[in-house]
């Protein structure tokens, strides 16, 4: 039986235009990327960012260092595009905060609870929470994806956890008062 090619081997084949390798790579990362983008952006422009991530990755694949981890590289592209999307949104008038969640056929009360709390965190702190707890990335890989030092990742993570706990407690106390 043929051994499964590593992501990095597939990336090398993608650079030569190998369609089978691209399909394999997209299949491996499809779910993780979609979930990362969904949580990072709060569900806005997910499809556009997802498409753009792969298009950019393919365009830049010649510059991909085969000694590096493909997962960190593709996540970094997605995270940068999510940040751009946040910046663009910040520059234009804001629609209803959680409008992206409306009408998506999911448990909206529960989703709003977690998603609205995450949405109240600064982008870089939300990013840290998503990468660490939903994608289980180690701090070294998070540092690579986020483009910061490992110490910064640690501090962002702990600040985010503290803030999230305070926000959650406030929400809980608010519910009790009502």
């Amino acid at each position: 039986m043929e051994a499964m090619a590593s992501d990095e081997e597939l990336a090398g084949r993608v650079a030569r235009g190998d369609e089978v390798a691209v399909e394999e790579l997209v299949g491996r990362y499809s779910r993780a990327l979609a979930h990362l983008i969904e949580r990072h952006t709060g569900g806005r422009d997910v499809e556009d960012i997802y498409q753009e991530t792969w298009i950019r990755a393919l365009g830049a694949i010649d510059g991909f260092d085969l000694q590096r981890k493909f997962s960190s590289w593709i996540f970094r592209i997605a995270v940068n595009l999510c940040r751009d999307s946040h910046r663009r949104r910040a520059a234009r008038p804001q629609a209803t905060e959680d409008s992206a969640l409306v009408g998506r056929g999911i448990d909206q009360a529960a989703a709003l609870d977690a998603a609205s709390l995450l949405a109240r965190l600064p982008v870089e702190q939300r990013e840290a929470i998503v990468l660490r707890y939903y994608h289980d990335l180690p701090e070294s890989e998070m540092a690579e994806v986020m483009g910061v030092a490992r110490g910064t990742v640690k501090s962002r993570l702990h600040t985010a956890l503290g803030k999230l706990a305070v926000l959650a407690q406030d929400d809980r106390d608010g519910d009790k008062v009502k």
Partner: peptide, 13 residues
Amino acid sequence: LLARILVASPIAV
């Protein structure tokens, strides 16, 4: 508390 909140974030993409 945080685990309960974070897990209550279903994704439908």
